[in-house]
C-alpha cells in the first residue's frame, strides 16, 4: 500500500512538472510577439462594452476604444488578432457573448478574402489567435475549424508538443511571465507610434475569381444570425488601407449582402480624406496599417458614426474608464 501511495505521489509530481513544462515552453507573448496576448487580455477586463470589434489586424491597429470613449463616451473593445479568419471571428464573437451582450458588433470584412484553402491560412497566425484563449467549447471549435493539415488538436491541449524546440530559445521573458501576464493593449488596441509613410505600393493583381467562397458566406451568415438572435446590431466595415488587396468586386458583394440582410456597411477606404488620414504620416508600415495618429483620427470619425446611428450610452465620467484613459494618455505620450 505504501508503495502504491509513493508511486502515486511520484506520478502527481510528474504531472505537475509536465504542466510547468507546458507553461514554460509556450511563448508568453508579453514582451515579444505581443499580438499573441490580445485575445486573452479580454478576460481580465470589465465586461460592460456596448461595442465589440472583431476581425484581423485592421481592427486592433486602426481602432482605439479609448479615443472613442474620450470622444463619445463609448465603451468598446477590440477582440482582434493577427490574420483573424472569419471562422475564428465567429467563435470569438460566440465566446464574447457568453460574457456580455453588446449593443453593436463591428466586423471588419477583410477576412472574407480567405477560405480554408488560402495560402494565407497559417499555423503561426492560428497560434497567435488561439494559444491564449480560455478553454471552452468555442476554443475547441476554433481549433477544429482552424487547424492546418500538419497541426494536431493535441498540440493545442499540450503546447509542449508544439513548442518543445524552444528549449534552447528561452529568455528571461519566459521565466518572468511564467505565472503572470502582461496587458499590451488598451481595450484591444495595439499602440504603434512608428511612422513609415507610403513610398511605393504593390501593384494590384488581377484575380481569376473575385467571388467570396461559400464557406466565408456561411460564416458571415453565422455571425449575422448570432447577432440577430441576441438582438445585437451588426455593422460591417472595411478599414482603410492603401494596399490594393480590397477589390471593387469584393466591395460590391459586401454591399449586396448588407442590403439583403439589412446590415450597415461602411467602407472606410472611401472616407480617407474626410477622416483626415495623411498616409505620409499616419501609417507605420507604408500604408497597410495606421499608426497611432492615424488610428486616433479614424477612431474619432468612427465613434461619431457609432454614436449618431446606434443609440449608445455616453459613459464619460465612469471611474474605471477615466483611469484607463489616464493610463492610455500616458502610454501614447
Amino acid at each position: 500500500m505504501k508503495t502504491v501511495i509513493r508511486v502515486l505521489i511520484i506520478i502527481v509530481i510528474f504531472i505537475l512538472l509536465f504542466v510547468l513544462l507546458n507553461m514554460l515552453l509556450q511563448p508568453k507573448y508579453a514582451e515579444t510577439l505581443v499580438e499573441g496576448s490580445m485575445i486573452s487580455q479580454y478576460y481580465t477586463e470589465p465586461k460592460d462594452h456596448e461595442v465589440i470589434f472583431i476581425g484581423d489586424c485592421e481592427v486592433y491597429a486602426n481602432f482605439s476604444p479609448m479615443v472613442m470613449y474620450e470622444e463619445q463616451g463609448i465603451k468598446a473593445y477590440v477582440r482582434g488578432s493577427s490574420q483573424q479568419l472569419i471562422w475564428q471571428s465567429y467563435q470569438i464573437l460566440k465566446e464574447t457573448l457568453k460574457y456580455e451582450k453588446p449593443k453593436v458588433v463591428v466586423f471588419n470584412v477583410n477576412s472574407m478574402r480567405y477560405d480554408k484553402n488560402s495560402p494565407e491560412v497559417s499555423e503561426a497566425y492560428n497560434r497567435l489567435t488561439i494559444d491564449k484563449m480560455k478553454w471552452s467549447q468555442e476554443k475547441i471549435d476554433i481549433i477544429k475549424d482552424s487547424m492546418t493539415e500538419d497541426e494536431t488538436f493535441l498540440s493545442y491541449v499540450f503546447p509542449v508538443l508544439r513548442y518543445h524546440s524552444r528549449y534552447d530559445k528561452l529568455t528571461s521573458e519566459d521565466f518572468e511571465y511564467l505565472f503572470k501576464r502582461k496587458n499590451n493593449t488598451y481595450n484591444g488596441f495595439l499602440i504603434n507610434k512608428n511612422i513609415k509613410g507610403v513610398t511605393s505600393l504593390p501593384t494590384q493583381r488581377r484575380l481569376a475569381d473575385y467571388n467570396f467562397s461559400e464557406e466565408c458566406y456561411g460564416y458571415l451568415d453565422k455571425i449575422t444570425n448570432l447577432c440577430k438572435e441576441n438582438d445585437i446590431k451588426l455593422v460591417l466595415i472595411k478599414a482603410p488601407s492603401l494596399y490594393p488587396y480590397w477589390y471593387d468586386e469584393y466591395d460590391e458583394q459586401i454591399k449586396k449582402y448588407a442590403e439583403e440582410h439589412d446590415i450597415d456597411y461602411y467602407n472606410l477606404k472611401n472616407n480617407v480624406e474626410e477622416i483626415g488620414i495623411d498616409y505620409s504620416q499616419d501609417t507605420y508600415d507604408g500604408g497597410l496599417h495606421l499608426n497611432l495618429t492615424g488610428a486616433t483620427k479614424l477612431s474619432k470619425y468612427f465613434a461619431n458614426i457609432l454614436k449618431t446611428n446606434y443609440e449608445l450610452t455616453d459613459y464619460r465620467g465612469d471611474a474605471i474608464y477615466e483611469k484607463k484613459l489616464e493610463e492610455y494618455k500616458q502610454a501614447i505620450q
Binding site: F14, F18, L21, D150, S155, V160, L161, R162, H164, Y167
Partner: peptide, 13 residues
C-alpha cells in the same frame, strides 16, 4: 518521458 517531450524531434515537419 519528460526528456522525450522536451528534447524529442517531432511535430510539424
Amino acid at each position: 518521458i519528460l526528456l522525450i517531450f522536451v528534447f524529442g524531434i517531432y511535430g510539424i515537419g
